[in-house]
C-alpha cells in the first residue's frame, strides 16, 4: 500500500460521511420543493445528529451500543475500501454486515416495534442485496477486475454495456435512502406506519452514530452507481446526482411499496433484468 492510497483512504473516511449528510440534506430540501414547500436548511441532517449526540437517555438493551459501533465501523470501512480502490464485492459484503448489525441491535431491544422493524429490515435486505450484487458483478465483468480503480478506469461509460441494471440500482438507492418500503418506516417523512421500524429502540448518541453510518452507506451506494459513467470525476458526480434525483422524483410521484410487494415483485423483476444483462456481457 503506497502513501497515495493511504491519503485517499483517509479522505474517504472523513469525506464520505459528510457527503452522505449533504445528500440527506439535499434529499429533504428537494423533496420539500417538489411539494412546494421551503423545507429545512441544507445542513439540517447535521443539526439533527448534533442534537441526538447531546441527548441523555437510558439504552433499551445492553447490547445496542456495541452493535451501533460495529455498524458504524463497517459502514465507514466500506467507504474507505472504495476510496482506496479495494475489491468492490468485498466492500459490498462489509456494507451488508453493517446492515446486519443494525438489525441485530434492533432485535436486542425491548420494544416489540423494534423487533418487528428488524424482521422487515431483513426482508428488505433480502430484496435489494442480490440485485445490487449482480450489478457489481456486471461492472466487474465489463471492467475485467473487481477492484474499484479498474471500474473507474474502464474504457468509455459502463452504462451502455449494462442498461438493464439501472432499474435495479435505482431500486437499491430508493431502499437505501429509506424511501421504500413504507412499512419499514424509517424515513423522515412518512415514518409513522410502525413507529420507526428498526430504529425504534435506538436513541440519543447511539442513534446519532447510526445516522452517520447511514450517511456512509448512502455514499457507498451512490458511489457504486456512479461507476456507470466513470470517465471523469465530474461525470461520476453527475451520475450519482441523477440517481439521487430520480429516486426523489419516484418517491414523490408514486406510492411506496410494502415489503411483500418488494420481495415478491420488484426484487425478482429487477434481478431478472440484471441477470439478463450479465448473460449478455458473457455472450459478447
Amino acid at each position: 500500500m503506497n502513501l497515495n492510497t493511504f491519503y485517499l483512504a483517509v479522505a474517504g473516511l472523513i469525506l464520505a460521511p459528510l457527503v452522505g449528510g449533504l445528500v440527506a440534506g439535499v434529499d429533504r430540501v428537494v423533496t420539500a420543493r417538489l411539494q412546494s414547500r421551503m423545507g429545512p436548511p441544507l445542513m439540517q441532517p447535521f443539526y439533527d445528529v448534533g442534537k441526538l449526540m447531546s441527548k441523555v437517555i437510558a439504552p433499551a438493551s445492553h447490547w445496542q451500543g456495541m452493535f451501533v459501533r460495529w455498524a458504524l465501523v463497517a459502514s465507514l470501512a466500506s467507504d474507505v475500501m472504495l476510496a482506496a480502490g479495494a475489491d468492490v464485492l468485498m466492500c459490498f459484503f462489509v456494507q451488508a454486515a453493517s446492515a446486519s448489525f443494525v438489525a441485530l441491535g434492533a432485535f436486542c431491544g425491548n420494544s416489540p416495534y423494534s423487533k418487528l422493524g428488524a424482521q422487515r429490515e431483513l426482508f428488505q435486505l433480502l430484496a435489494y442485496e442480490p440485485v445490487f450484487m449482480v450489478g457489481i458483478l456486471c461492472m466487474a465483468k465489463a471492467a475485467g477486475a473487481f477492484d474499484a480503480y479498474s471500474f473507474m478506469a474502464a474504457q468509455g461509460p459502463l452504462l451502455f454495456k449494462m442498461p438493464l441494471i439501472v432499474p435495479g440500482l435505482l431500486f437499491v438507492v430508493l431502499v437505501k435512502l429509506r424511501k421504500s418500503p413504507f412499512d419499514i418506516a424509517a424515513s423522515h417523512h412518512m415514518h409513522q406506519e410502525v413507529v420507526r421500524g428498526v430504529y425504534t429502540d435506538y436513541a440519543g448518541r447511539d442513534f446519532a452514530l447510526l445516522e452517520i453510518a447511514h450517511w456512509a452507506d448512502v455514499t457507498v451506494v451512490l458511489w457504486i452507481c456512479s461507476f456507470l459513467w466513470a470517465t471523469s470525476p465530474l461525470t461520476m458526480v453527475v451520475t450519482a446526482g441523477l440517481f439521487l434525483f430520480a429516486a426523489l422524483v419516484i418517491d414523490n410521484i408514486s406510492a411506496r411499496l410494502t415489503w411483500r410487494t418488494m420481495l415478491g415483485r420488484v426484487a425478482p423483476i429487477t434481478l431478472i433484468l440484471a441477470t439478463a444483462n450479465l448473460v449478455w456481457l458473457y455472450l459478447e
Binding site: P40, K51, A203
Partner: peptide, 20 residues
C-alpha cells in the same frame, strides 16, 4: 405543507425515544 414546519427543523415523530 401549507405551514411547512420543517423549515424550523421540526419533524413529527411517533416514538418518545426520539422526541424532544
Amino acid at each position: 405543507p401549507v405551514y411547512d414546519v420543517e423549515r424550523f427543523g421540526i419533524i413529527n415523530v411517533g416514538n418518545p425515544r426520539h422526541a424532544d
